[in-house]
Design a protein around this nucleic acid. Structure first.
Lengths: 158, 158
DNA sequence: CGCTTATTGACAGCACACTGTCGTTATGGA
DNA sequence: TCCATAACGACAGTGTGCTGTCAATAAGCG
């Protein structure tokens, strides 16, 4: 009995397009925010994933935590290593899978990025309110869960 | 003064990460959905933008409607033209800016993509409910507006 | 111990969006 | 009319993410 849904006005379509637009705006804002630090949104996120994990984990572990593929993360990690923001430590549990660690410069860069992000995060939260932020996060999470259930999840099936 | 916000647990940070993840999931699901039609998410969206606009508009116009740059859209349009899904018509208002039109094959491909998307859109909407969809769309729009106000809008300043 | 399987790193190639730049075309004001 | 500005198409280069593939390592099992 579905009504004749115009693909342009379907609520799910409009929400999806809004996600696309906000995603682009967030990446753009993030790039601008951390550009003075020699960072990009992707490099910043990888530094954050390492910091959040306690400071040392292999590339594949970073990828899992971020929901990306090893290959994507690896390129960024190599880039960060070339810039001296991360270094590699031997992994007692796996000879080839070296642990990625923040260097002093990397720790400092991530702290500086966080300091630059904090005011904007507060502004965004104040604009929409904590309740709406929580509700939106829940809704988006439900959508992502439904997508992965309906379509075979992403991951690293290599 | 602001509480000591852990950058990992700030509601705005968590919402941003959720947007990133859902964006990736939507693109991935879209690619899978329309792959049998020889389409990708990007090509599908461009076809949709042309169809929504009534069938003919220049590349730069498509880009404005989608919130992307001319250059990004142009590559996809050229690709669609090579595949016979769109064609170019002379523009009475601008000699070089030819109008992009859907071919019969393009119209058919977009209709097929819409037909494949409809059930998934209905499923997603049923999962979260119309009210949550509307609320989330509003919240995301507010965030995007706030970002563009705070950080110099995106667009095509070329 | 030896074999199979899963995990990991590494490399190549593709898709997509961005910035920067140039030449062409329209448009509007001096 | 003529020139400055804006808009558009085109091309090059960069960043990010994906898939596909291979060799090396680790872990489990007969």
């Amino acid at each position: 009995m579905n009504a004749v849904h115009d693909p342009f006005t379907h609520p799910a379509s409009r929400l999806a397009l809004e996600v696309f637009r906000l995603n682009g705006a967030l990446i753009s804002a993030g790039d601008t925010l951390v550009a003075p630090l020699g960072l990009t949104s992707a490099r910043w996120q990888v530094l954050g994933a390492i910091a959040e994990a306690g400071g040392a984990l292999p590339t594949a572990g970073i990828a899992r935590n971020m929901g990306l593929t090893r290959q994507s993360v690896q390129r960024v990690v190599d880039d960060l290593a070339a810039r001296g923001l991360v270094c590699f430590a031997t992994n007692p549990h796996h000879k080839r899978a070296k642990l990625v660690q923040l260097t002093a410069a990397g720790t400092q860069a991530f702290a500086a990025a966080s300091a630059r992000w904090a005011p904007l995060a507060d502004l965004l939260l104040a604009r929409i309110g904590p309740a709406a932020a929580e509700a939106a996060a829940t809704t988006l999470h439900q959508l992502r869960t439904t997508l992965s259930e309906a379509g075979a999840g992403s991951g690293d099936p290599t």
